[in-house]
Design a binder for these strands. Structure first.
Lengths: 347, 347
DNA sequence: GCATCTTCTGCTATCGTTTGCAGAAATTTC
DNA sequence: GAAATTTCTGCAAACGATAGCAGAAGATGC
């Protein structure tokens, strides 16, 4: 392996001069710099990043901890974050938690050990104590989920608005028996979305019926199972809303397998819009999220935190230190006004 | 920051003893080990990985270089690879190339600089010379695409079989005017898939018609544009096959916008099967790929390479150093026997 | 009781890079 | 021409962890 000593020997200067030349230090003669750069290129020199880190400071690594990158939402976010970080000269370490606090801890530990510059995380429901302690040594921001025990900026969507939009849409169409499948209620996304759903019902003098609601950890089969159980009941709900990106596909597959007519017998609102949702039946009405924008803002937010740490008092514009994005409703053919005959039929 | 010296001071031993105790070295007294571990936990000690790397060796980082992680294919692969690497104690650095040789070089340089353990890459069409030189310093394997200038094991699918399956299916249904939209022909995936398509046609005494074929770099709008152009011609082809995961969705959207009846007026075969392809119209017949398995094998292959480097002559079972997986055809409703009236209609 | 062996621990050099300080060389000033 | 100044370069000490070597302490054998 080529080191600066090798370059120094070739050029005939001291290693320290090589270091300064490569760092473009002003007190090095231009001729020397040129010769050093020439020799470095010639020898194929690549700096030894770990050695640099010996003198303190952080590496150019940024951690990205998500539950599952197969989920469209997170893969899109990973793309935005990775692009944003690469532009700023950082490399992204992708850590998959599978919603396990143990894995989360493992990844955070690895990042602290590698002296990462920071971490963007989608916290698990109950992060380990050790995780919280380790996070204090590492600039970090929360993505999508906001955890009370983590005291860090949050970049996400207006969770309450997402389900409020969906619920109001269904209520406006006359639905009163609305089923709800959402994520783990110990997560901010799970609880806030469900509470907003309940409030929207309450505004119409209704209450969420427990037998029509399921809250899951998002295991592989959860959404399909929940859909089948809820729709097997009598009376069957007239509408179903999904409150998580990972829940939508399986639920739609299950509804399809049950051969229930949509929207005639059942109205459906999906979550996290994509082109494919336009293909299902007459298209699935769904809650759209500006995923790329949220993730981009999140990356900028973390990068802004670095600058903040280095020098507090300069006047360059700073990215927002927190941000909440508004979801929007994409209306398609899976929702329809509740027909009077419908109620009779299912009753 | 807590170092090994701090622990040494607390316990009352030398730093080297602490190092040995934490590494569970056999020549350290059990009592000493216990006291050291106790103190380390107490102080919240986290090893300084960069310092370890000073004495040579590689870090626990593995690079994963893909063009675009929003693509279902690559996000699934990233999941499999990341899980496999995490199990073996490695962390994955996700690098997005956007099919740019410059970005590819940047990522490889970063990995070499960080003394990464290895890299799994989906090579760009023409990697830079510098990239090839750098790769020699880093164990690496090729994923999906196989590049002649990179002398490293390859893990991918039987590209020829993928389009052969699709073409034979369409030919068997009586189609003779088959349109083809594929990826960049400078890539192994692009060229091999197309050549197999041509051969399949040749076996029926047919030739691929240039005006029905498009080969693109896979830019955002490419697939949709190509679809519109090909289907605007007279006579219009009676079948269309897509030969890339990233091409399928846009092409299907374009066909839908053109209001062409599928499969009555046009048969379609998609690429890289997913649940959503079952939703489009009567379902899209497509070439399925065992993505998770390929990616898993690829990760194992790279990890096996590490073992191989460390000690050549042990008799533990080794994972395959190369692997090619067979694609399979998933038949759905987007393909149908060519009706005689059909030929008249489009002529 | 002495030699020998075993068991455990400390000293120290080392990895590659950076940086403060000092000093050499070149240039300018009076 | 000497002094002062500027411009450039080298020395050496860090940073944190590890491992070879040596040595201390204790156990064992005769």
């Amino acid at each position: 392996m080529i080191t600066i000593k090798d370059i120094a020997r070739v050029v005939g200067v001291a290693p320290s001069t090589v270091a300064r030349a490569l760092a473009d230090h002003p007190h090095v003669h231009e001729d020397t710099k040129a010769r050093v750069r020439e020799a470095a290129a010639q020898l194929g020199y690549v700096a030894h990043s770990p050695a640099r880190l010996m003198r303190g400071g952080t590496s150019s690594l940024i951690g990205l901890l998500v539950p599952d990158v197969r989920n469209d939402f997170y893969s899109t976010a990973a793309q935005a974050i990775s692009e944003g970080c690469a532009t700023a000269g950082f490399q992204v370490v992708l850590g998959l938690t599978s919603d396990s606090a143990a894995r989360e801890l493992g990844h955070v530990h690895g990042l602290v050990s590698a002296r990462a510059a920071g971490v963007i995380l989608v916290p698990t429901a109950r992060p380990a104590k050790a995780t919280l302690v380790l996070l204090e040594r590492l600039p970090h921001v929360q993505f999508i989920r906001r955890n009370r025990s983590i005291h860090a900026p949050w970049f996400g969507i207006d969770d309450a608005a997402s389900t409020r939009l969906a619920a109001q849409h269904l209520l406006g169409l006359g639905h009163r028996q609305i089923a709800y499948i959402g994520g783990d209620r110990r997560l901010s996304t799970g609880s806030e979305r469900f509470e907003a759903f309940e409030k929207a019902l309450a505004a119409h003098g209704l209450r969420a019926q427990p037998e029509y609601c399921a809250h899951g950890p998002g295991g592989v089969a959860f959404s399909a199972t929940a859909t089948r159980q809820i729709l097997a009941q009598t009376p069957r709900p007239t509408a179903l809303m999904l409150a998580g990106s990972h829940l939508t596909v399986d639920a739609l597959e299950a509804v399809r397998a049950l051969r229930i007519a949509v929207p005639d017998e059942l109205s459906i609102v999906g979550f996290n819009d994509s082109a494919a949702l336009g293909w299902w039946g007459a298209g699935v009405t769904s809650v759209g999220l500006p995923v790329f924008d949220i993730a981009g803002a999140c990356a900028s937010g973390l990068l802004g935190k670095f600058r903040q740490q280095r020098n507090a008092g300069d006047d360059i514009p700073r990215p927002p230190s927190e941000a909440m994005f508004a979801p929007f409703l994409v209306e398609r053919g899976s929702t329809a006004r509740l027909a009077p005959r419908h109620t009779r039929k299912s009753a």
